Simulated scan of single mutants.
Amino acid sequence: MKIEKILERINMDSSKKYEPTLQTLQLLQKQYLLNVPYENLDFFLNKEFSSNLSNVYEKIVNNNRGGICYESHTLFLYLLKSLGFDAYLIFAKVKDLTYIGKDYPHLLILVNLNSIDYLVDVANGQNVREAMNIDSENFISTAENHMYKIQKKNDKYILLVNYKNATWTPRYYFTKEEKFPSDFIDIFRNDKENNINKKVPLLITLAKENGRITMLDDKMILRENNRKSSWKISKENRVEALKKYFNIIIKI
């Protein structure tokens, strides 16, 4: 596995030396979000998800795919640690359980820089786009007309979201407890028995500089510069749409 190829996958200069600073972390997170989609295609291809780093590298880097949180954060953590960052994996409990369910905790990354812990999330669909100091309750991050802040309660943390100055509501809850691949390596092994692929919608979504492009089942949704447009696509046109909007070449 080559760090240079991962950097090229997220459209960064692989010949440059990147220091483990907050500026570098913010740049890496931004570039990952703009170039690697969150996508759950493997649910519908009857393929088992893998948290094995070699498998994830092959899928996202060599095959130009995206991934779910277990995949993208496995790869992103490897990139961060290879560049000298002090980082590890944590779990979060998502407030809205309608997408997958309570048995599938969200995987995140915690990065420590100059004794400050930063929450990093590159695989949660529409979400925070920058690293957030988990102990700074006054800091608000804004992306796609949503505001985000972190609230601490004892040893637990809440990522709160506010859409268009409405009400602050929990997005997910997390602690600083370190997690390891062994904690989630078998999490999707029983998908066929659970029939999970029939419970969740097909979802491929990629951040853009000023918006987002999403495939949701048979619908394409484009949000850009505060404008929204959507159109239906047939199953026959999915392959074409995946290539055109996400640069994913695959049969589905």
Rank of each mutant, 00 (worst) to 15 (best):
Y172K: 02
K219V: 09
K208I: 00
E209P: 07
K192F: 12
L202D: 05
T205G: 02
F180R: 12
Y163G: 01
Y163Q: 11
R212W: 10
F188C: 10
Y163D: 02
N225T: 08
L202I: 06
T205V: 02
R223P: 00
A207C: 11
I158T: 10
R223H: 09
P181A: 14
P201C: 03
K192I: 13
L206S: 04
N197P: 01
A207Y: 07
D186L: 14
N190K: 10
N165L: 06
N165E: 14
E193L: 04
R171W: 06
D155G: 00
M220Q: 00
I150S: 02
K198L: 15
D191L: 05
V200R: 11
E209C: 04
I185Q: 09
Y148A: 01
R189E: 07
F174A: 05
D191Q: 05
N154L: 01
R171C: 07
F184Q: 03
L159G: 08
P170I: 02
D191R: 06
I204E: 01
K176Y: 08
Y173L: 12
I196H: 05
T205R: 03
I185D: 01
E209F: 05
T175A: 11
M220N: 02
K208C: 06
D183W: 08
D191I: 03
K219M: 11
L160Y: 09
L216H: 08
I221W: 06
K176T: 15
L160G: 03
R223A: 04
P181V: 15
K199G: 13
P181H: 15
N190F: 08
N225M: 13
L203T: 11
L222M: 07
K208E: 12
D183R: 09
N165H: 01
V161A: 06
N162Q: 15
M220H: 01
E193D: 07
K149S: 00
M215C: 10
N190E: 12
L222A: 00
L160C: 01
Y163V: 13
N194S: 11
A166D: 06
K199C: 04
I158W: 05
E193R: 04
N165G: 07
Y173G: 09
N197S: 13
K179Q: 15
A207L: 14
I213A: 00
T167Y: 12
G211W: 02
S182M: 08
K198C: 09
I150W: 04
D218I: 00
K179P: 14
I213Y: 02
L202A: 07
N210L: 07
F188T: 12
R223M: 06
K156C: 11
I221D: 02
F174T: 06
L206F: 03
T205C: 04
F180H: 14
A166L: 04
D218E: 08
Y157I: 08
D183L: 14
L160Q: 15
K219D: 08
Y157K: 04
T167I: 06
L203H: 12
M215P: 00
N195F: 10
N190W: 05
R171M: 09
E177H: 13
N194T: 10
R212E: 07
S182Y: 13
